[in-house]
């Protein structure tokens, strides 16, 4: 399996890793069963512009790279523009992913949408065309650390 140079660059030098303390919205998607969890933090200004985006990801090289690219792409966008960031757009920006890794790019799109959904809930607004996230995070809360 071969990753593109862009994927390797975003994996080795991930942009926007971290948390935003006073985030306007956060979204966590993925599933420990298949080994990918992405958490996205968004800071959205009063006029509805995504000012900052951060992420934390448990996952493979593709999962980290798509998180990095997706957060890069959403920064500076209006909410409408942010909604149009698709998994395909993230994948294209990374010069593609190996076929078995395509689901990682879906996760990035879902994570952005989940964070936007959280923002809308907090603000009490409705974002046209945005669906509630599917919450399938599980299991890890029950795991004992050693």
């Amino acid at each position: 399996m071969l990753y593109s140079e862009k994927v390797m660059d975003h994996f080795l030098n991930p942009r926007n890793v971290g948390e935003i303390e006073d985030a306007s919205g956060t979204g966590t998607v993925g599933n420990v069963k298949c080994g990918d969890i992405m958490k996205v933090y968004l800071k959205i200004s009063d006029d509805g512009t995504v000012e900052d985006a951060k992420f934390k990801t448990f996952g493979c090289g593709a999962a980290v790279a798509t998180s990095s690219m997706a957060t890069e792409m959403i920064k500076g966008k209006s909410i409408d523009e942010a909604l149009r960031i698709t998994n395909k757009a993230v994948m294209d920006a990374l010069d593609g992913l190996p076929p078995i890794k395509v689901h990682c790019s879906c996760l990035a799109e879902e994570a952005l949408h989940a964070a936007l959904w959280d923002y809308a809930q907090r603000k009490g607004i409705i974002i046209e065309g945005l669906k509630p996230p599917v919450n399938d995070i599980g299991e890890h809360d029950e795991v004992m650390a050693y």
């Binding site: 991930p14 890793v17 948390e19 966590t28 420990v32 969890i37 992405m38 958490k39 992420f55 934390k56 990801t57 448990f58 980290v64 890890h140 809360d141």
Partner: peptide, 8 residues
């Protein structure tokens, strides 16, 4: 440091 599971 970049894992949401570790953060949790």
């Amino acid at each position: 440091d970049m894992s949401p599971l570790y953060e949790d």
